[in-house]
Design a binder for these strands. Structure first.
Length: 496
RNA sequence: GGUCGCGUGGCCGAGCGGCUAGGCAGAGGUCUGCAAAACCUUGUACGGCGGUUCGAAUCCGCCCGCGACCUCCA
């Protein structure tokens, strides 16, 4: 366990706070997962990659983490009131559960492509109808819910008037909400007040996904599933709740209200919100064409990019910005990220090949400090861009060691091992990057042997000043996307 | 209109009262058969206008621009 202080920005208090888990050494973390009615959006990928890195860093720091990320498969309605899942089913002429399965599979595949760790528990809303019905009953019993024609609504006015803090997370002021009453009186509504929200909805006869309940045959409100499932798996109050900042209101605000209404307890001590992914400075929007899917990004099949970018290049691009800042996706930025990613991975390979006679240790402190600083950056609200900048300072040092500009023998064997260990931990354990050259190479055993042979032949040619042969080998390899790099000592190669 | 947040060099993006962020691109150099890679050196900055302060990209006010959200039934 790293004995350092972790600080996180808490959306609830709008302050960076020292993180203290409820139970020392253990962390409960809930993140709102996707509604599986469509292919996963690139912006969602950024959010889940961000929380994956948070999860990984907490694990690396020595915590036992229970990471719960749900699958929303019912209740998330569209503006027109249609259930997103049912709309998907209607459009594709599939069973609702086929839609759910299809897009859950797609989501999982994408999470694997981005090399994220699986959550500890991935509960589905439809698998927790009973828990949700029980929670609705608790809310009614405590006086915060009322039934109208088979639907049940949460009484936000009563909740707010008791000073329970409705609107605290999102900055909404209940007085403002109350003042809107007059404008809304003309609307036909079962709700006592416009800011009230449904926690159970009576289903229309033709509605497919519906369950029996004390109030009607119906289905749970969208916000309820997260309250019910986080309570079930993490307890009434747990440590971290995460999600995209577009969920702050109403979803997270209502979640807090539901938990408070059901058991008078705050669901989470720390609320973490990721910011939006933009493209070319504007929000991604299907309606005006300013959007790109992960697949299009990988293949380059989009007018917004000049070429395809590998998943790890994209992930590296995400890492270069803080999770709570907006991130602007542009072709130029992706090209820059791709090159940066390759340089980082190449430096790691260089590092693994370094050895030291270890007869000095004057560099030990400097290298250890640089590595330590990177960890401190992660402790400061998971500042991946800052940590990355530290890693790149080390990249320069590593290359200087290789080139002999810095005397590696001034680094003790222990310090070098330490550097290798921690650099690797950062790249693979914490950031969850993959070496795509290795992964893509597949049968790297044979490939490496083959390349050794080819480079040896070229070396002989060069020694004989047979530049024609040497350049032919180099050019042919380049056509195969293999780049030869002549170093001082020996010749290396990478697959581009 | 309301709530929350953002505007940093050619591009992306950290920093958030005094100290070089970093990546990519650019310039000069080292190395090299040539090239690439690598290494060294280096320029360019904090939307605008005021204010607070010994000192502001960093705090405050106003303005301009941008983003998210503003709750099924609406």
């Amino acid at each position: 366990m790293r004995n350092s202080t972790l600080k996180v920005y808490n959306s609830l208090t709008r302050n960076k706070e020292t993180f203290k888990p409820i139970n020392e050494g253990y962390i409960g973390m809930y993140v709102c997962g996707p509604t599986v009615y469509n292919d996963v959006h690139l912006g969602n990928c950024r959010t889940f990659v961000s929380f994956d890195i948070i999860y990984r860093y907490l694990l690396y720091s020595g915590y036992k983490v229970r990471y719960v990320r749900n699958i929303t498969d019912v209740g998330h309605l569209l503006d027109d009131g249609e259930d997103r899942i049912l709309k998907g089913a209607r459009l594709e002429q599939l069973e609702p559960m086929e839609i759910v399965q299809k897009y859950t599979n797609g989501f999982h595949k994408m999470m694997t492509i981005f090399n994220t760790k699986k959550p500890s528990i991935e509960p589905r809303a439809t698998g927790h109808i009973i828990e949700q019905i029980e929670m609705v009953q608790d809310i009614i019993d405590n006086g915060y819910g009322y039934e109208k024609n088979g639907s049940v609504y949460f009484d936000t006015v009563k909740f707010a008037n008791e000073g329970k803090g409705y609107g605290k997370l999102s900055g909404r002021v209940i007085e403002d909400l109350l003042s809107e009453t007059r404008d809304n009186l003309k609307n036909q509504s079962e709700k006592n007040h416009p800011s009230d929200f449904a926690i159970w909805m009576k289903a229309a006869p033709e509605h497919i996904m519906k369950w029996n309940s004390p109030w009607s045959v119906g289905f749970p409100g969208w916000h309820l599933e997260c309250s019910a499932m986080s309570t079930k798996y993490l307890g009434k109050t747990f440590d971290i709740h995460g999600g995209g900042n577009d969920l702050k209101f109403p979803h997270h605000e209502n979640e807090i209200a539901q938990n408070m209404g059901a058991c008078s307890c705050q669901p989470a001590n720390y609320w973490l919100h990721t910011n939006m992914l933009l493209m070319n400075g504007r929000k991604m929007s299907k309606s005006d064409g300013n959007t790109i899917s992960p697949e299009e990004l990988f293949t380059g099949d989009s007018p917004h990019v000049t070429k395809g970018f590998s998943p790890m290049a994209v992930k590296f691009f995400f890492l270069q910005s803080h999770y709570s800042s907006p991130n602007d996706l542009t072709n130029d930025a992706l090209i820059a990220a791709e090159k940066g990613y390759k340089r980082l991975m190449q430096a790691y390979k260089t590092l693994t090949g370094l050895t030291t006679a270890g007869n000095g240790n004057s560099l030990d402190a400097e290298f250890n400090d640089m590595m330590e600083t990177a960890f401190n950056d992660m402790d400061d609200d998971f500042n991946t861009p800052k940590a990355l900048s530290r890693l790149f300072e080390l990249v320069t040092k590593i290359n200087s060691l290789k080139e002999g500009h810095i005397d590696i023998n001034q680094l003790s064997a222990e310090a070098l091992e330490n550097l290798k260990k921690h650099f690797s931990a950062f790249l693979f354990d914490i950031f969850g990057l993959l070496d795509e050259q290795e992964a893509g190479g597949g049968n790297s055993q044979a490939l490496n042997g083959l390349m050794d042979l080819i480079i040896d032949i070229r070396k002989s040619a060069r020694e004989n000043k047979d530049w024609t042969t040497a350049d032919k080998i180099r050019d042919k390899l380049k056509e195969l996307s293999i780049e030869v790099k002549d170093g001082k000592e020996k010749t290396g190669w990478i697959i581009n």
